[in-house]
Structure formats: C-alpha cells, structure tokens
Computed example of a mutant assay.
Amino acid sequence: MWTITDSPIGQLRLVEDHGSITAIEFHPFRDPDARILGDRDDDHPVLVECARQLAAYFAGERTEFDLPLAPVGTQFQERVWKELLTIGYGRTASYGEIAGRLGLTGHGARAVGLANGRNPIPVVIPCHRVVGASGALTGYAGGLERKQLLLGLESDSLF
C-alpha cells in the first residue's frame, strides 16, 4: 500500500508492506522496480502514522521516528542503513566514520556512500546526515538542496 504526503521538501510517497514502511520516495516518483507498491490507501494505519511523524519532524516537534521499518537491500546495505540510525538528530557523520564503525578499510567509505545512496527510506533512516570527510555536503539521492534543507531543519548552525 502507499500514500502521498506533502512536506517542505516536496511530495513524498510512503510505501508499506506487511505493516512496515519499505520506502519513502521523493517527487517526481519513479515507477517501482522490484519493490511491491500495491494500491493507494490514504487511510492505512502505518502510512497515516508515518505521515503524522514526518509532519511533526518537519514542524520541529519530533527528533526521532518510531515506525516499523523494513528496508530491502543487500546484507551490507542493511548494515549501513542500521548504522545510519545511530546518527543523532542535528548531528552528522562522514562516510569514512561510518565505514570505520563497520570495521571497513580501504574503499570502505566509497562502499558506504554507495549503500547510503540506495537507502529506500530517506529522512527516517537519516542518510542526509552523512557528509564528506571535510564536512562538506556531498551527493544525496533527493538532491543537495533537499539535503541542505533537512540538515537546516535539524540545526541552524550546521549549514
């Protein structure tokens, strides 16, 4: 099931499967690949709760999400996404720091960057909080303007 909600970063398509959020997509929406999209259901309880928590986050009233999540990816991607959840509101971490936390060496930061870019549940799994080694904003699947807006919502002093 899925629904659409408005936000300061544009419309978001919220997708759930078996009672868990599986995707949050930025507009313009792409056709689903292998993911299950299903029918639109604006009244599905998990989707309604996700939209409510996102609205509270964007209003500055929520710093953490409490939603059932089921991102689908490789085992490595899922490890990275789990680590992203440890980056607190208003904080950032570099790709290299995330790689180090996962015990990766060599091209670990690059691998983390690739997994970060495939995060199917942005905002809730805060891939926007990952920055370059110098602290500079780097790529973001939703575009750097959205990344900057999200970080700005969390801390006026970051950017």
Rank of each mutant, 00 (worst) to 15 (best):
T3R: 13
S157V: 12
S20E: 12
S157C: 07
G19V: 09
L114S: 12
E145Y: 01
G88T: 10
H107T: 13
D6G: 10
I4W: 00
A115D: 06
I98G: 02
Q75G: 04
A136L: 11
P32R: 08
M1W: 05
I87R: 07
V72F: 05
R79E: 14
A136P: 01
D41E: 13
E61Q: 15
L104W: 02
E16H: 09
W81G: 06
H107N: 15
S157E: 13
W2V: 07
M1G: 10
D66T: 07
I98W: 02
R40N: 07
F58R: 03
T105K: 12
Q53R: 07
A59M: 05
R30D: 08
P32H: 09
S94T: 15
F26H: 11
E97D: 07
I9G: 01
Y140A: 04
T63S: 11
G152L: 11
L151D: 02
K147Q: 15
E145T: 14
F26I: 01
H128G: 05
L69W: 06
P120L: 04
R91M: 09
A56H: 12
E25G: 01
D31K: 09
R146E: 04
F26C: 02
L14N: 00
D66I: 00
E61R: 15
I24A: 00
A59W: 03
R91V: 04
S155A: 14
Q53V: 11
A93P: 01
A133Q: 12
S155Y: 11
V123G: 02
D156F: 08
A23V: 00
H44T: 02
P120V: 06
G73Q: 07
G10P: 01
F65P: 01
P126S: 10
A111K: 14
L153H: 14
R110V: 15
A136H: 12
S134Y: 08
P126G: 08
V80P: 08
I21M: 13
F26L: 05
G135I: 08
P68R: 12
R30P: 01
G135W: 11
G90K: 03
P126C: 06
C50P: 05
V80T: 01
V15T: 15
L85H: 04
W2L: 08
L153S: 09
P71Y: 09
L149W: 06
P126I: 08
H107I: 07
N119R: 02
A56V: 04
T74N: 09
R79I: 03
F65W: 06
V124T: 06
M1V: 14
L14K: 00
Y89F: 15
H27N: 05
T138R: 14
V48A: 10
R35K: 10
W81Y: 09
W81V: 06
T105S: 13
G88K: 14
A56T: 05
D66C: 00
E97G: 05
N116P: 00
L37V: 11
T3A: 15
I24Q: 00
R129F: 08
T3I: 06
L14V: 07
P45N: 14
